[in-house]
Design a protein around this nucleic acid. Structure first.
Length: 618
RNA sequence: GUCCUCGUAGCUCAGCUGGAUAGAGCAUCAGUUUCCUAAACUGAGGGUCAUGGGUUCGAAUCCCGUCGAGGACACCA
């Protein structure tokens, strides 16, 4: 039995302890799960509150849901902060500062806490000594790029459905955003301890794939030497179907040439869908995007799953026949009042009830999608995420209503809408691809700037913001270019390590040597500040995963790169702060351990994005 | 007309699910920089968080209204 309730609180109940001893090499590190230090202090405080309640100093059974332990917004306030005084004041019947003082007393006894202060309306702030931070660095070095792996998800199954582009043509840039977003979100959730399934829903049913079949048949005739002239209105004009037509001709010869449509359509449709799917998969491979499961709408429908799903809804009294109001705004020309089979979506928060059957009696796309989400639920996914394009905004409420209905409220669907990507080059809108006819393909963009730049760029904005993607600007070497700046910081860590090997050739710098380094020489405020930044990575992972917002990782990495460069430049002003000091091996080793830690965390973040860290800027 | 998303510095955007004096980058201004190769670094100025109410110890964040931008609006997928 898995309980999800704890996900709602920001502090997480964890069943492992953080070491406060300063012997960094003795940190217990059985599983590659690292500590969110704020979660650690959250549990400490909860335990303290329990003891205070037993001692009669506070009421029993206080609701701790709103208790947070976070870094203060202003670092001058301290390293860690809690709002306990304020949120417990009313239920406990004591002033905020009194509660804060009770907790402060316990904190002062903690070996790593150097300073405790009560501030403002009742914040409790405290600082941690340098040894505590050096111990975090030790943990980090032991974990390597797996630093930040979390047990938060508790192995709970999550299904992330993304891309799901219609198998009728190549992928374009809009698809690329959803693909990268879904892929990174899945990786992020996996890092946060969820059992993630990456899924693609193939829309291989409906009129569109019949159109595809007719378009492919035309190209097939062309491949056999017929002059087909212009592509008729209503068929897909893209050149990419020439290959499909030629491949079909090669396989089947003139077998379909003088046949009625009914004879060839199913076979050619299947052939064309396979061909399109192969093309889509190769486009995705270019981006490094992979899925675990491909689900076919047609297969689902033919298995009778749609009928069964609708029967369960019907049994729950959620299906009825009714006539909808005419749509507001522009009225479709052929609109007429007509009784339809409807899903009572309004019972679950939607604005109107939604049609399940078309006028010809077949199921709507929505009906099939209900069956598909029920299928995911039956496969064990109580947490589902759909990544959709901006034009699907109006679809969210009804799908969430449907998921609640088919699961009796036991499953939750989060829908992430990815806004548009506008391509520019030197400020001018980027030209469309000839090959695809009407849009810029994913392939065009990847060939232009490379897979890693595309992936990173797609994650530098929150999903509900539009992205202006300038293909020239991402090649700029400046702080204005987030991708370059982060990659450059990683390259600089490597360049420092290379430099050290030249300056002190006999100093061992492998990961074991750095892990064993005595970190005591690290004490400059700028060094400790950088460790603080690094040590916040586990918390960043958890909060980004919880919010389903991978873009936070991009901003974190950007700030970390800034912190590293700050320290690097301090070495220019003050030579004693350089990473490599030929005359002082002990300090050099400690500093290089810090440099290596920066490299690990950047690599760890880039891993979530599916981006390779750069070892050297060319 | 309804619904969704958005509105934060001159520009491009963050803001950790309600916290303290709202932050970065670019641009501007003033410094530093023959340095572990790097177009980099330090500092300053710049804000009625579109707007009017409400909720509470506390609101850019939550609720309602208004204005503005984009998108979607039976039977397509």
């Amino acid at each position: 039995m898995v309980r999800f309730a704890f996900r709602r609180s920001r502090g997480l109940a964890m069943d492992f302890r953080i070491g406060t001893d300063l012997e960094i090499n003795e940190q217990p590190f059985a599983h590659a799960v690292t500590m969110n230090l704020f979660a650690y202090f959250h549990t400490e405080l909860v335990q303290t509150l329990g003891r205070l309640a037993e001692a009669g100093q506070l009421p029993q059974g206080l609701d701790l849901a709103r208790l947070t332990v976070e870094p203060p917004r202003d670092p001058s306030h301290g390293d860690v902060s809690t709002n306990a005084g304020m949120v417990l004041s009313k239920p406990a019947g004591k002033p905020p500062r009194v509660i804060a003082e009770l907790l402060a007393e316990a904190l002062r006894a903690h070996p790593a806490v150097t300073e405790v202060a009560i501030a403002g309306p009742g914040f409790l702030n405290w600082r941690l000594d340098d040894g505590f931070w050096r111990a975090r660095l030790g943990e980090l070095l032991a974990a390597g790029a797996r630093y930040g792996d979390s047990a938060m998800g508790g192995g709970a199954a999550v299904n992330v459905e993304y891309v799901s582009a219609n198998p009728t043509g190549p992928m374009h840039v809009g698809h690329a955003r959803g693909a990268v977003f879904g892929d990174a979100l899945a990786s992020l959730l996996a890092k946060a301890g969820f059992a993630v399934c990456r899924e693609y829903y193939i829309n291989d049913a409906g009129a569109q794939v019949d159109v595809l079949a007719r378009s492919a048949h035309l190209r097939y005739r062309e491949a056999l030497g017929e002059a087909i002239g212009d592509i008729p209105e209503g068929l897909y004009p893209g050149d990419y179907l020439k290959e499909t037509g030629a491949a079909l001709a090669a396989r089947d010869g003139d077998k379909w040439l003088n046949q009625p449509e009914a004879a060839w359509l199913p076979a050619i449709r299947a052939f064309a869908i396979d061909s399109m799917l192969a093309m889509i998969k190769s486009d995705l491979a270019l981006l490094g995007v992979k899925h675990d499961v491909f689900s076919s709408e047609r297969a689902l429908s033919e298995s009778g799953a749609v009928d069964r799903a609708l029967q369960t809804l019907e049994a729950a009294g959620l299906v009825y026949t009714g006539t909808l109001e005419p749509p507001k705004g522009k009225l479709p020309e052929d609109w007429e009042p007509r009784p339809q089979t409807l899903f009572r979506a309004t019972a679950y928060g939607d604005d109107i009830d939604r049609p399940l059957k078309k006028s010809d009696g077949s199921w709507t796309y929505f009906a099939a999608d209900i069956a598909y989400h029920l299928d995911k639920y039956r496969r064990g996914f109580a947490q589902q995420i759909d990544v959709l394009g901006a034009d699907h905004g109006g679809y969210v409420k009804r799908m969430q209503a449907a998921v609640k209905a088919i699961s009796n409220g036991n499953a939750a669907l989060d829908v992430k809408i990815c806004q548009l990507v506008q391509l520019f080059k030197d400020g001018e809108p980027f030209k469309m691809s000839k090959r695809a006819g009407t849009f810029v393909t994913l392939r065009d963009v990847v060939e232009e700037v490379g897979k890693d730049v595309v992936r990173f760029m797609m994650l530098t904005r929150k999903n509900d913001q539009t992205i202006d993607f300038d293909l020239a600007k991402v090649k700029e070497e400046s702080r204005d270019n987030m991708v370059w700046y982060v990659q450059y910081a990683h390259a600089r860590t490597q360049s420092v390590l290379r430099r050290a090997r030249v300056e002190i050739p006999d100093l061992a710098l492998d990961s074991a040597a750095l892990l064993a380094a005595d970190l005591a020489p690290l004490g400059d405020p700028a060094e400790i500040a950088l460790i603080r930044q690094l040590a916040s990575w586990p918390r960043q992972v958890e909060s980004a995963a919880e919010a389903h917002e991978p873009h936070r990782v991009a901003f974190f990495l950007y700030e970390l790169a800034g912190g590293f460069n700050t320290l690097w430049h301090k070495g220019n002003d003050d030579a004693s702060l350089r990473f490599v000091l030929a005359h002082d091996r002990r300090t050099t080793l400690a500093r290089l351990a810090l440099v290596q830690a920066v490299a690990y965390v950047i690599a760890s973040g880039l891993q979530v994005f599916g981006v390779e860290p750069v070892m050297e800027m060319m």
